[in-house]
Design a protein around this nucleic acid. Structure first.
Lengths: 197, 197, 197, 197
DNA sequence: GATGAATGAGGGTTCATTCAT
DNA sequence: CATGAATGAACCCTCATTCAT
């Protein structure tokens, strides 16, 4: 039995596919409908507008990311393992979300523009602050457990988050380049070396 | 006396202003003309299409970045100083290019999409490879000069580039947040500490 | 026990309410269903199309008007009294039919257009001719009864019908204006004075 | 040389033709463009929206009517002659404005609806008040000139305006019916008889 | 009979591009 | 060269109607 939520998900998935291929603005509602295998009008039974679809994708991405990071942060693993898994999750996200990275980039830009113009608060900024706090906690934990050396936690946390973003960002461009994946692994190792006791 | 190049620059500047405020797709040719203080038709005397304006902005950005990095890399400074200045240049770029960061993000996404679909080669990827090689050289230089410790150069270079991108990316969101600027400085310092001898 | 006719009436009433508020074209079937407290699909069990609902409203209006005028015309009152009551009935119709006056205006226009284009005969025109004959008869009666002076019956009948329409028409605009109501009473009195013996 | 005003008039004329034939809502912008012999987009160079076209038609109608009535009221004719000409002008308006009567009816209904819902003040109501005052003045003039008998001016003025509206309204339905025209003439004559000294 | 989810034709509006001046 | 009036393809969204349940 299909619930409303199922249907929404079906549409969102089609939308992600279409927007990834054509871009947020060029992606047509008609195409989303075709991909979802439903009629154009049906989409409007579940979303008031194209903008609302944007919002839903954004929320899905943010929700998924937060819950995933949460799960990793609250696991029984060692701090070092936690950090590695957070980085790897982010790395894999591109694969997990399919081509969603393009979409996130555009939503991000769009959102930031609107935020700048005072239209709305940034969900992305909130997400960031949350991730930042989470990383700080793990670092603390690691220091107390004598696993990490004493460090400027703010600097390292910022470095780590920037690293993750940078990797995602670049992976958009170097998609499918095997050599790039090796470089990333090397980068992560170098980072972890830098903070270990 | 206005050369053709001057006029093109005038249009590009107007385009950057408009696209930054409205986005690549929502930014209208009519608005660019208005901001540039010329007629709508005149734009088409200098650019064949809106897409060509996108390309010109992209080239300008890549050209500026490459020449700037080049200049820094070939200066007489110490390797450590060179790296710091490269990072700082990138950091300031957001300020230097005004609101161009939004635009770059969208061009990037657009470009990656087209690349994925086999339409054209990625200027961004080329730019990256170039930056990567430049950083590797500086690291090499630093190790030989006994300024940097022995390290996995590939990992560290990748880490550095990702750091730069991540910072730019996040600065889009945290624009104007003073605390964020402090965190960035801390992150850079942490990174430099990690590679020094 | 609800008969089919009851259900139709229920729908018509809802339709009148909706059309009065939103107009014939802007008034949505979905809203009618909501107001009627039934499902959208149910409306199509009783009416083949939106146009058929228009027709039903029109028929109801014409039927109500004709039967009412008939009743008044065939009553035992004096001719003068009859005319006064016909006018007053029309005057009150606006109140009786709620906001139906707007609807009638639009149906009228729509109908006239279709008639002009040869699509169908005008029920409104038939209704008019009937009213016209009725008034002529009452005038005759009044003249014979020595209650009305000799007159050009055609002219006076036309004048009276136009007066009624004009008042309804204007009352749409001056709805709720007390002063306007006084003016109308004065107009009717003036008219009656003009035909009395 | 075509001015902007000329172009607007050209579009309005096409719009009147289209709306008269199809109705306000069913009349398509595309059709207006076709009738005007211009491109669809061009219409939006001169009018912001379909609603603005409605407004322009309304203003044209009201402006024309007011200026015409004004001219008649301020002429050197006798009061009786003035009234006759005002009535005749209104009668002819249907012919003068082509099929505009249908349009006016719908604008009227639309406008009244909006007014009722508090959206805007009614231009039509203002026009009415103006006509009313004008007629009162003429009646006054006629009484002083011993041309009209003493009367309830408010009643007679209201009667006259209602007569005019009623005639226009009915002429929509009886368009082209010669007998109807005779009846109207008879009605006017009857009215004039009723007020003469 | 009753329902409302699904549909897609249709229309208002936008805007990149053209071209006559 | 420069212009901006004109254009029409394109697209979002609405809503009357259908039909499986």
């Amino acid at each position: 039995m299909k619930t409303v939520e199922d249907k929404k998900t079906q549409i969102i998935n089609a939308a992600v596919e279409v927007f990834a291929k054509q871009g947020l603005e060029k992606g047509k509602i008609a195409d989303i409908a075709k991909v979802a295998g439903i009629g154009k009008g049906t989409i409007y039974e579940y979303f008031k507008s194209k903008d609302e679809i944007f919002g839903a994708i954004e929320n899905m991405f943010i929700g998924d990311s937060v819950s995933q990071i949460d799960k990793l942060a609250n696991s029984k693993k060692t701090p070092r393992k936690k950090l590695e898994e957070i980085v790897n999750y982010s790395l894999n996200m591109h694969g997990l979300m399919g081509d969603a990275a393009y979409i996130i980039a555009e939503l991000w830009a769009q959102h930031s523009r609107e935020q700048l113009q005072g239209h709305k608060e940034s969900h992305f900024a909130n997400m960031y602050s949350y991730f930042y706090d989470t990383v700080i906690n793990i670092l603390d934990e690691g220091i107390k457990a004598n696993e990490f050396r004493k460090m400027d936690k703010n600097g390292i946390a910022t470095l780590l988050l920037a690293l993750i973003d940078g990797i995602i960002w670049q992976s958009v461009i170097f998609k499918g380049d095997m050599e790039f994946n090796l470089k990333i692994q090397a980068a992560i190792k170098s980072f972890m070396e830098g903070i270990k006791k």
